[in-house]
Design a protein around this nucleic acid. Structure first.
Length: 496
DNA sequence: AACTGCGGGTCAT
DNA sequence: ATGACCCGCAGTT
């Protein structure tokens, strides 16, 4: 198609295979000549497409790290699932060991209702379901379609909330709890959070399984730190089948192998849970502290980039990225229902509602975003204007043109230009900075990085949406290089 | 008990 | 027509 696509064809898989081909889940005919499949992606995020082998067990099960529930789209050909978000402590309390509670919402409606009636095991305040509004105000949706020997996957939207426990983590935790319960030595006390600082960090690979196995029921341990290094629960890059870890008995060694080189240096799971400020605000810390901050967009070893980022982003937040000082949850807080309702009102009503474009923030909306859901939206910031401009530039470069009904072409083209961001696999392995330039990634990585502040800047609803989505497509349309890449920039909330 | 997929149905755009 | 969402059913884990 485009020259860039040719490049991709020639290059060593700089993006997911699915992304290389232009298709949409709704296409009457999907690519049939698939000779190469994508490795299963547990934590897809953004507008991505993958083509899995029909043999892939995880794909067969339509698994996702995110809590996705089935959604009837009246199309038996395509299975549609929408994200349920994440369950957190309504007070955003910090566990004794500096972690945050980020539970996986029960998929079953009934079970979820029960779940929400429970109290935070740490502070006994209510649990709160943070709904996913990453797709134009609606939950991120995943589409699955079996066609021929392949399973086509397409995701729409960018999760605007922290990750919950993955399914495997939840399962592991449950089974662990069961074992404990069954054990005569089991002590109820042990089920409560036991800080043991450093405990997890001392582990070679303090993966969630280990954590959850040792921690109380219902806990998803997300270490909080001033170094909001974002890591993926398992493997950020599509190397091995990360999702298998939970089922396999590989243990730490396997984790090590699976972990990306970038991931290793850091303390795993040093997520910043629900940072006080939005999107961008986690970036500075992330960038400054992470050993591989800008990796995805630029040569990982590109200090200027980091510095640049720090500069541009830190100003945005106007707050330390350190986590929790935020009183955001300390304020009196409407109950989740009310809150969400208000959100719905904001998005669901009025001219902006439906499309979910972030409406011009009314005082209300602003309040909502800034305080209750700081992660979703950040109020005006000093650097906003600049950021806006940058973003627009970016989207322009990308040439992404939002379309109500994603057309293959539009999709493809915009993605092609940027998808070099994906597949960090090859990028990492090759460690070739040139890869990026060859891929036409915006030289100015800060462009993307600063894009976070975009939200505030975009003047109009439409622009906002378009730019935003354009940005999304361009910046992290690929999940192959998942979280590390994507999250720092977008993440407003919690994990990073 | 909870998960998962299916499909009938409603509602809003 | 489309998409989001609710609900119940049934099979599975």
């Amino acid at each position: 198609m485009s020259k860039s696509s040719d490049q991709f064809d020639n290059s060593d898989c700089v993006c997911s295979f699915g992304m290389k081909l232009t298709w949409d889940i709704n296409d009457p005919k999907l690519p049939q000549d698939t000779k190469q499949y994508d490795a299963f992606q547990e934590w897809t995020d953004g507008y991505v497409r993958y083509i899995y082998s029909a043999e892939d067990k995880n794909a067969q099960r339509h698994l996702s790290g995110w809590a996705m529930r089935n959604t009837n789209n009246h199309n038996c050909q395509i299975l549609k699932k929408s994200c349920l978000g994440v369950v957190v402590c309504s007070r955003n309390c910090t566990l004794a060991d500096g972690t945050k509670l980020q539970l996986r919402p029960a998929i079953c409606d009934k079970a979820r209702q029960k779940q929400q009636k429970k109290l935070c095991p740490n502070c006994s305040s209510a649990l709160e379901l943070v709904p996913c509004r990453g797709h134009s105000g609606y939950p991120v949706t995943n589409f699955w379609r079996v066609d021929g020997k392949a399973i086509f996957f397409q995701a729409k939207g960018v999760h605007d909330h922290p990750r919950p426990e993955s399914k495997s983590e939840t399962e592991a935790r449950r089974s662990a709890v069961k074992r404990r319960m069954a054990s005569p030595h089991f002590s109820q006390k042990r089920r409560l959070v036991e800080p043991e600082p450093g405990r997890y960090h001392d582990m070679p690979f303090p993966n969630i399984h280990q954590l959850t196995m040792e921690t109380p029921d219902r806990f998803s341990i997300i270490a909080e730190s001033n170094f909001p290094i974002q890591t993926q629960h398992y493997t950020p890059f599509q190397n091995t089948e990360p999702y298998k870890f939970p089922y396999d008995t590989h243990g730490p060694t396997a984790m090590a192998d699976a972990a990306s080189p970038l991931q290793k240096p850091s303390n795993h799971r040093l997520y910043m849970a629900r940072p006080p400020c939005g999107y961008d605000f986690a970036v500075p810390g992330y960038l400054s502290s992470a050993p591989y901050p800008t990796a995805l967009y630029k040569d990982p070893a590109s200090p200027p980039c980091e510095a640049e980022l720090n500069k541009s982003c830190s100003g945005l937040s106007g707050m330390p990225h350190t986590t929790s000082s935020l009183p955001n949850h300390e304020r009196s807080y409407p109950d989740a229902t009310t809150k969400h309702h208000s959100w719905k009102q904001i998005l669901g009503k009025g001219p902006y509602g439906e499309r979910g474009e972030y409406p011009q923030l009314s005082a209300n909306a602003n309040h909502y975003y800034n305080t209750e859901y700081p992660c979703r939206y950040t109020g005006p910031s000093p650097n906003t204007p600049t950021a806006l401009q940058t973003i627009i530039t970016t989207t322009t470069k990308v040439s992404y043109q939002p379309c109500p009904k994603p057309s293959v072409v539009k999709y493809g083209e915009s993605i092609y230009d940027m998808k070099g961001l994906s597949n960090c696999n090859s990028v990492l392995e090759e460690t070739s900075p040139n890869t990026y330039s060859d891929l036409k990634i915006p030289e100015d990585s800060s462009v993307i990085k600063t894009a976070l502040s975009y939200q505030d800047a975009v003047p109009t609803k439409i622009e906002r949406t378009e730019n935003f989505e354009g940005y999304r497509y361009s910046s992290y349309s690929s999940n192959s290089c998942p979280e590390r890449l994507a999250h720092p920039y977008r993440y407003e909330g919690g994990e990073y």
